[in-house]
Structures are given as C-alpha cells and as structure tokens.
Design a protein around this nucleic acid. Structure first.
Lengths: 341, 341
DNA sequence: TTGTAGGCGTTATCAT
DNA sequence: ATGATAACGCCTACAA
C-alpha cells in the first residue's frame, strides 16, 4: 500500500519552526530580512520536512517565475543545440531556468507552444527566426512578454533579436564560389515557406548570381527536410539533370553531409567531380570527408547574448535591441577552384 | 507608452458571456455538461477576449497538469534527440505536453531539475539511466510521481524502465570483434562515474575478453567527454602507447567519429591500420568514412514505449513495467577482420 | 524582525 | 444545465 503522498507546504514548515508563513517565505526569498537565528530554525524545518516550494502557487502569487521559454524548430540535429546550451548556462548564472520545446518546424505547433509557455508564466521567450503568424506577435505584445528572436537578423524590425544576416552570409559564400570559376550552381535548401533563414540563404545566392551577371532564375533549387537523407536524395536528383552543376550549395551542414555521402555512393569524387558547401559549421562539418566548406555561425555567442539581453528585458533594464553578429566563411576541401592551377 | 498588459481571466469571460465562472470552466473542460447554446456563447466570448487559461492556476486547482517532464544528459548530440522526438509525439497524441531540460551530465543539476519539474506539477518524469542519488528516488516516491527510466535496462529493479542491456549489447559487439581475430583492444569511454550506460558498455567488453581467455585488466581504457574532440584526443593517446591496439571500441558514435577523424589526420587508414567501432547508430554513423560498425539502438521505439507506458502509469492503468528492447549489431566497414582472407 | 490577511485564477463540490 | 463558493499554496502589502 503506497502511502498517500503527503506533500509538505509552507504552513507545515511554519508550524514546525514555530513562525508565520510570511517568515518562512522570507527565508526563501529575502534572507536578508530575517534574523540569523530564525533563518537557521526555518531552514532546519525545511530540510526535516523535505519541503519544496510549489512552483505554481509561487507563480500565481508573485507573478514571476524566473523561467524563460525557448521554442526551437528541432532537436534532431545539432544546429540549435550548441547555442541553446550556452543560452541555458547563461540563464542559470542569473538564476533563471529554461524550458525548451520543439515545434518540429510546424508553425501551428509553435503558436500553440508559445501560448503554453506563456500560460505557464514564462517571464520571457526565445524564438527562432522572425517569420511567424502576426497573431502570435500580437499575443505576446498584449501579454507583455519580452521576446527575443535568434538565429536571424531583422532589417528595420521592432523586435529584439540576436543573430546574423542569413542572406548576406550566404551571399559572401556564393561570391567566393563564383570567384573560383564556378558558373553552374545548384541549391539544396530546407523548406522555405515559413522559414526566413532558409529563404534568406537562397536569396543570398541569387543576389550573388545577379551581381556576377548570371541568371538567378535558372538556378536549380530543391527544397527538402533538413535531414541527411533529404540532402542525399536531393543531391542525386540534381546529378541526374541534363546540365550538371559543378557545385551544390546546401542550406545547412546536415543537408551537405547527405549530399557528400550520396556523392560517394554515386562514385563521384568531392571536390574533383563536384564541389559541395554547407551552412552553420556544426562539428560535423569538419569531420566530413572531405571537410566541408561552410559558413561559421557563432552559436555559443548567440546563445549567451540572447540570454543576457532577454534577462535585461525581463528585468526592465533594456527594451530590446537588435544585435547583429559576424559570420565567417570557413574554407575547407569540399569546395574546389575551377581555375587552372 | 506600452499599455499595461490586461490579461483576461475566467471572470472576464464569464461576465462577457453572462454566465458563471463555473460554466466557463465547464466549456473548457467538460463540454458535454453544457448546453449547445451557452457553449457557443462562451466560446465566442473567449475568442473575443483572447482568453487563455492560466496554467498555474489550473494546476493548483486541478492537481493535474497533463505535462510530462524529461531530463536528458545533453542536447549537444543526436543521441537522445531521436528518441525524445518520438517521446514527444506520442505524448501529444494522448494530450500531454513535454517539458525538457538538460542536466549536462551533472548529477547535482539533474537532482535539482527533478525537483523543479515536480514543483511545476509534472504528472510524470522521464529520466535517463538508473544510476542516481537515492535521495532523488526517495523524493519521487514520496511525491508519488510516476517515473520511467530509459536508455537502460535494470536487472531486478523496482523501477519502471524501457531500454536495452548496455552491457550485453556491447558484449555481443566485442564477441564479434574477437571472433574476427583481434586480440589487442582498447576502449574510449564516456565518463563512467554516475553513468550506468557507459559503465555497462565497458563491462560488456571486459566480459567478452574474459570469456575468450584474455585478460580484462590489461584493457586500455580512456574516459573522456562524449564529444568528437574527446574521442579524437583519446584516440591519439591510445595510438602513442607501446603496444598499439588493432581495434578501438568507443562508448558511442560521437567518440568514434572523433577517433576516425583523428586517425585520418594521423595518416592511419581505417580499417586497414586500425579498426574502430561505436555505439548508438545515430545517423552520423552511416555517413562516416568509412561507415561505422556500431550497435543499433531502437531510439524511436524506445521513445514511443516510454511515452505510452508513462501515461499508463500516470493514469493508473499500469504500475510500471520493465521493457527490454533488442539491439542489433550493425556491421560496417570500420571494422575489419584480421584473419587471412 | 515578525505576524496578519487578502488575493492570484482555476477547479470542483454542492446546491439550485 | 447552471451558479455559489471553498479550496489550492504562496507572496506581499500592511500592521505591530
């Protein structure tokens, strides 16, 4: 027979310590307002009873939770993991907790999770990218929930954000590619609808093409899931077309990993037969064979800044700025020059 | 001047719809107990006001949250991502939400997060592995929180769990390795302290050694972080020893990826100069060069079963069983036979 | 420094 | 089918 769980409350502690609930509460939240002696007493009682404050009651009474919510598109690959880890660490240093949920790249699910997190009393939110239903922003606004957008940078936006310019970054990489003599490019992108990062990256390539006098509209683009298998299949499809590209630029490293792998299976040598590039510079990129040329994104820095800035917003020290970080092109062996040596 | 956020409550809805709060509550939770007409009215009011139920208030009054908490050691690699994704999906199908946090492989942090999740009113918990402070189990027990342990299987345990026998699995792989003529093995493991999965895997190798008449105590073992870099450095260290192993067995695929990569940098050919094996069979394993021989773990299945079982426990349909899943040895090119062809 | 008491937004019991 | 109303566990003026 399992004893019915008898959970100790503030009252129990107060009674055990012979003080009022207010005093116990103070011992928990404002130690300085309590005498050493009673503090010791109370703490003793807390330990003896195995008391844990009820979060929900706390949230209701205080209207603060010291909790930040984050919604990321996926946990299935390392893209967000690194940054999120740093985000969590930085939050902890300031006494905040992190609640994570994944939207699996589904806008409706994200909207739902925003409401869930807010309903739970999240003091602030971290969202990825800026493209989402207006209703969501409106909701956040009405509720007065400080929100940071990350992994992106938003031109002339009213939103606080920390990230980089996906379009400009990819454009720089494309410029490099073109400067190496490539003229026949192809692109493997994540699904663009509802994903501003993906859209920006493709746009960057097109801009580069235009600037170099090439036709952006004839650029072959395949959209697929951000998965290794997706990248692989898309790559194969690209290779079967009439005019084979000499370089395939991928929307992220995971897609590129799939592409490189499939190339190998098809008997194509990278980069001699075909060059491949990625985006993100996750750890995977450097251990691929050949190592992947990609855009390095400062994941950890982004997470740290997001955390600090968000806390400042929550604690009214800031009203939300926009931070644009620098990226770096990481040249590795998967991209080869077409010029004579 | 930002308008002070005026969040609508049940009362507001009730007033707007001209009914009592009780009725509104019913419309939200037990529609069938309300007439069509009032239901429509109330829903209208809810929409008009943009009302969202306050989760914390709800949790307090109902003592149920339909929320499951999960604490995983890391989000930094894909090991748990796949299973967790399936876990979340299955939970959703039954109307449950998932709250995730990461312990970064720190037992104290995990203990803290268990309390946090319980304080938040989690109806149940998913934990990885079984090795943790007794106090935590006791706490969970006292609070009456259904808990599932995953990624492991526990001999004669009172705990509900779903997973596989890490020791037996690795032993099977080691048996294969030995049957291929290898006698000089070395191991790169994650830190064993506080990590039963890591410990079990190493034990499996030792058992295999013993069974084959080899001395398990002379097995070189390096413990390191579950990271690519950790695996790489450990590998290099192993290669510098007097008696070079002919095969390096790694505690997981991430370590193996690091090892393979470093081998390449050192000018060693895998598997001709050295064989390498992994554990988990994450996607990465098959795109490594050469593809990695590893132990395939049914991640998604594990997540699904964990979710179903945990819900059953929460809803008192089950008192917690132990499910042991099968793993499969995935033979790929990174492991080579030493026998003459 | 400590105690008293009202209120936070729901659910659920008991009437009606 | 609907309405009062008492919890739920804590925080926080306000008082002492």
């Amino acid at each position: 027979m399992p004893q019915s769980p008898n959970i100790p409350t503030l009252d129990d502690v107060a009674r055990a310590a012979g003080v009022s609930t207010a005093t116990v509460s103070r011992c928990l939240n404002e130690k300085e307002k309590v005498s050493q002696k009673t503090l010791a007493h109370v703490m003793q009682a807390i330990n003896d009873l195995g008391y844990t404050p009820n979060f929900n009651a706390r949230a209701m009474a205080a209207k603060r939770t010291h909790t930040i919510g984050a919604i990321i598109p996926t946990m299935e690959n390392a893209i967000f993991a690194k940054g999120l880890q740093a985000f969590q660490e930085t939050l902890r240093e300031s006494g905040y907790n992190l609640l994570v949920s994944s939207s699996v790249y589904q806008p409706e699910l994200e909207a739902e999770q925003v409401r869930a997190l807010v309903a739970r009393g999240a003091d602030g939110l971290l969202l990825i990218g800026f493209e989402r239903d207006h209703a969501t922003y409106e909701f956040l606004e009405r509720r007065g929930i400080p929100t940071m957008l990350a992994w992106t940078s938003i031109p002339e936006s009213v939103h606080a954000s920390v990230g980089f310019d996906n379009c400009a970054a990819m454009r720089r990489l494309a410029d490099r590619v073109l400067s190496m003599g490539h003229t026949k490019l192809a692109v493997i992108s994540g699904f663009i609808k509802g994903n501003d990062r993906a859209a920006g990256r493709v746009r960057g390539i097109k801009e580069s093409l235009s600037a170099h006098g090439l036709d952006p509209d004839s650029l072959p683009i395949i959209e697929t899931h951000y998965e290794i298998e997706g990248g692989a299949d898309a790559f194969e499809e690209l290779m079967q077309t009439e005019h084979r590209p000499t370089v395939v630029m991928c929307g992220n490293d995971v897609l590129a990993a799939g592409a490189i792998n499939r190339a190998k299976q098809l008997g194509l040598h990278v980069p001699d037969d075909i060059s491949i590039t990625g985006f993100d510079d996750i750890e995977l990129a450097s251990i691929l064979h050949p190592p992947l040329t990609t855009v390095h994104v400062p994941h950890r820095q982004m997470g740290q800044i997001a955390a600090k800035e968000l806390i400042d917003m929550v604690e009214k020290r800031s009203s939300g700025v926009m931070r644009k970080l620098d990226v770096r092109i990481e040249m590795r062996a998967s991209l080869k020059s077409l010029e004579a040596e």
